[in-house]
Computed example of a mutant assay.
Amino acid sequence: MAQRDQTTRMCALTRAEKPVAELIRFVLGPDGVLVPDTEAKAEGRGVWISLSHDAVAEAVKKKVFGRSLKTEVGLPEDLPGLTELRLVQRYLGALSMAKKAGQFVSGAMKVRGLLETGNLIALITATDASADGRSKMVGPWKALHHAAREEGISGFDVPHFELLSSEQLGLALGLENVIHAALTKGAAAQAAVEKARRLALYTAKPTDEGTGRHAVDGDLLPNGQV
Rank of each mutant, 00 (worst) to 15 (best):
D219S: 00
V47N: 01
R134K: 10
G44K: 04
T203W: 13
M1F: 07
L13I: 01
D5V: 03
K18C: 07
R213P: 02
K41E: 05
A98L: 05
T184K: 02
G224S: 06
A55Y: 00
D54P: 00
M97Y: 05
G133L: 09
A55Q: 01
A200Q: 04
D54T: 14
E39Q: 13
P76D: 09
D37P: 11
Q89Y: 12
G118D: 03
L69E: 03
L144Q: 03
L95N: 01
P222L: 02
M137K: 10
W141F: 01
A108F: 03
G32C: 05
R197K: 15
A147Q: 08
G93Q: 09
G218P: 02
E17K: 13
F156M: 08
L82N: 08
Y202F: 15
G29K: 01
S154Y: 06
K136L: 08
A191K: 10
H160Q: 07
V64W: 04
V226D: 11
I24A: 11
V47E: 09
A187T: 15
V158Y: 12
G224H: 05
A101G: 06
E43L: 15
M109R: 15
D132L: 09
P206D: 12
A55N: 08
E43G: 00
D78C: 08
L69W: 12
V216C: 12
M1W: 04
R198A: 15
E209P: 14
L163N: 05
R197A: 13
E43F: 14
A98T: 06
V60P: 04
V73K: 10
L51Y: 08
M1H: 13
D128V: 00
P159A: 12
I121T: 14
A98E: 12
S68W: 14
I124E: 09
R198N: 07
A98W: 06
A131K: 15
D217E: 09
K110E: 13
S165I: 00
E150V: 12
D54E: 14
K100L: 15
V158Q: 03
A108N: 02
R4F: 14
V138P: 01
E43K: 11
Q89F: 11
N119M: 07
A57Y: 04
V64T: 04
Y202N: 11
H146W: 10
M97W: 11
T38I: 15
D5N: 07
T83G: 00
A189P: 01
M97D: 02
M1D: 04
N119T: 00
D219A: 11
L95Q: 02
K100I: 12
S50E: 14
Y91G: 03
L199Y: 11
A188F: 05
L114R: 04
R197E: 09
G118M: 05
T184A: 12
S68L: 08
E39L: 07
K63W: 02
P206V: 07
D5T: 07
A129S: 06
E116R: 14
A16G: 01
M10P: 08
E39Y: 10
T83R: 06
N223L: 14
L115S: 03
R9I: 08
I49G: 06
L171D: 14
R9G: 05
E151F: 09
T125W: 01
G218M: 02
G66Q: 05
G152R: 03
R90S: 13
A94E: 11
E194W: 09
A148P: 00
G218Y: 10
P206G: 02
